[in-house]
């Protein structure tokens, strides 16, 4: 279980990006975090990844505190961030330095086949399309078999068709080992298509506003009326989160929620 306990982040310039964010995510759950710009969703993800330290509060994975990048936590960024000097295969094997060469080769080959890029093993990253590059990034993050995979708007730079394709592909890969997925997105369709639960955040300072359970079985039909209903409720919540006249209502914020102004 991944626990975020009153995580706050104030940048050195005094801007409070995140205020006492608390949430619990159980193993294998897919959680989407959605919110207006500047709501601190990327800050939150970086704190969970151990890339940035929270100013206060703590992140624990199976009661182990996360303060630095952790072997059980993988991350996929908005850009593929492949290492341009490594072939596609070597990029995927980047996190497997501890394994023997033979083991690494075998795992990489399996991952390549799994993301449908077996024929690109020896290609350079520059020779890939945007979607292919992001597939490699997904394979690179998944091949060490993390328990938690963080995704920071992973498909937002792709065209609509490729995005859907990769969303389905991600779910397909997720089903192999069922890691916990935490997906930061600004795409309501993506959140409802993938997540078991959508957390809506509101900005300035970034905090949790609402939670919406998506009780839909997978595979989900994006054209089903029920799917549309969920999308509408997420959208409504999102709209309300941006309306200053609507008070914070989520109990997990707890007392002592300080308004920074």
């Amino acid at each position: 279980m991944l626990v975020l306990d009153r995580v706050s982040k104030t940048y050195p310039n005094g801007v409070q990006a995140l205020a006492r964010f608390s949430a619990e995510v159980s193993q294998g759950e897919i959680v989407a975090i959605i919110g207006g710009s500047g709501c601190g969703k990327s800050t939150l993800l970086r704190a969970v990844a151990g890339l940035d330290r929270a100013s206060s509060g703590r992140v624990t994975l199976d009661s182990e505190a996360i303060a630095a990048p952790h072997a059980k936590i993988g991350i996929i960024f908005q850009e593929p961030r492949l290492l341009p000097w490594l072939s596609v295969a070597d990029n995927i094997g980047f996190g497997l330095a501890d394994l023997s060469a033979a083991e690494r080769r075998e795992k990489v080959a399996r991952a390549l086949a799994r993301v449908g890029l077996a024929d690109k093993a020896q290609a350079w990253p520059r020779e890939l399309s945007g979607g292919q590059a992001q597939r490699v990034a997904i394979a690179r993050a998944l091949v060490p078999q993390p328990e938690v995979l963080l995704l920071d708007e992973p498909f937002s730079a792709l065209d609509a068709f490729t995005r859907r394709d990769l969303q389905d592909h991600l779910l397909d890969l997720w089903a192999d080992t069922r890691p916990t997925l935490i997906l930061v997105t600004h795409d309501v369709d993506e959140a409802v298509a993938l997540a078991d639960r959508v957390l809506v955040m509101r900005p300035r300072p970034g905090r949790l506003f609402d939670q919406i359970e998506i009780n839909l079985t997978r595979p989900r039909d994006r054209n089903a009326p029920l799917f549309e209903n969920f999308k509408r409720s997420v959208l409504t919540s999102l709209d309300r989160s941006l309306d200053r006249n609507v008070p914070d209502r989520d109990a997990t914020q707890g007392p002592g929620q300080a308004m920074w102004w």
Binding site: P69, A71, G74, I75, F77, L83, F94
Partner: peptide
Amino acid sequence: KIVEVGRTFRLSGFAMIRRILLP
């Protein structure tokens, strides 16, 4: 951003130099 990739894979200082900075 590339250095961050090294960090997420927990490269030590030396490995970071050899596998990220040098190339």
